[in-house]
């Protein structure tokens, strides 16, 4: 009986938290006008969220592209289709790996930092202080960070894909001897702007909303002590990663018309 009670209490708590998150995020989105009225705050956060995440995204993108180049070449060459390396590489990165891996890296680097920062601001009464100064912390602190995350994610994903293609080209063309003309021309002919590039952009925007939304909510809702902030940071990475992978499957199915 106690076991059932605990399950019921857990479900109720989760539903309540989801409701709180929905209200919170609707308030954050309602303050979207800070993009105009507090443009410089958004730019500052864009620097903090985007530029600081750039090194890990670029380095990861380069290595992922290089590994893809090796793996794909070894498979394609068996079918005499090594010239298709550029096309397959670009499609893999633009459709899937660019948005997904960038979102996972973004959750680990920027998402956790956002949660920790906001959680610590709460623990040190900075958010309460703002409220008492008649400044809405959702407008002043949360909304600029949320917008910055949503803007930064697609840009980082684009850079990840670009450097990944460069890495794949280095291995495929530079090391394994794939024809450079075939590599680029097949990519140019095979990649569709709407079907491939825009779908990737849509995915990365959705991931940006989800990861940044989870990060700012977890920070704002954190228990205001060191353990609470640590737990919230952990939640951000775990929930964001799971949400990204789950949503990727759903969006891919919808985009391919399989559902």
């Amino acid at each position: 009986m106690k076991f059932l009670e605990n399950i019921g209490a857990g479900v109720l708590q989760s539903v309540e938290r989801l409701g709180r998150a929905a209200f919170f995020l609707s308030e954050v989105v309602g303050h979207g006008w800070v993009l105009v009225t507090r443009f410089w705050l958004v730019v500052q956060q864009l620097y903090s969220v985007g530029v600081f995440t750039l090194p890990i995204v670029l380095v990861s993108g380069l290595f992922v592209g290089m590994v893809l180049g090796l793996q794909l070449y070894n498979t394609l060459v068996k079918f005499g289709a090594a010239e298709s390396l550029g096309l397959v590489l670009a499609l893999s990165l633009l459709r899937e790996l660019g948005p997904v891996v960038t979102a996972l890296l973004f959750a680990g680097r920027a998402g956790s930092a956002l949660t920790a920062e906001i959680g610590l601001m709460k623990a040190t009464e900075q958010l309460a202080g703002m409220e008492m100064m008649a400044v809405n912390p959702v407008m002043r602190v949360i909304a600029p960070r949320f917008l910055a995350g949503v803007i930064a994610m697609p840009l980082l994903a684009a850079l990840f894909s670009a450097i990944g293609i460069f890495g794949g080209q280095m291995i495929g063309v530079g090391l394994l001897g794939v024809d450079s003309g075939a590599f680029w021309s097949q990519m140019q002919n095979g990649v569709d702007f709407h079907e491939d590039i825009m779908n990737g952009v849509i995915k990365s925007v959705v991931f940006g909303v989800v990861v940044t939304g989870i990060a700012v909510f977890e920070g704002y809702d954190a228990v205001p002590n060191s353990e609470g902030v640590a737990r919230a940071t952990n939640h951000t990475v775990v929930y964001s990663s799971l949400a990204v992978l789950g949503l990727d499957f759903i969006m891919t199915s919808l985009m391919l018309g399989e559902i």
């Binding site: 040190t124 900075q126 309460a128 202080g129 008492m132 100064m133 008649a134």
Partner: peptide
């Protein structure tokens, strides 16, 4: 409430300065 708070000040236990 925010209009009223503009006429109030509050000193928090640890200052609550924006870091």
């Amino acid at each position: 409430l925010y209009e009223l708070r503009k006429r109030m000040g509050m000193l928090f236990q640890h200052g609550a300065l924006l870091t």
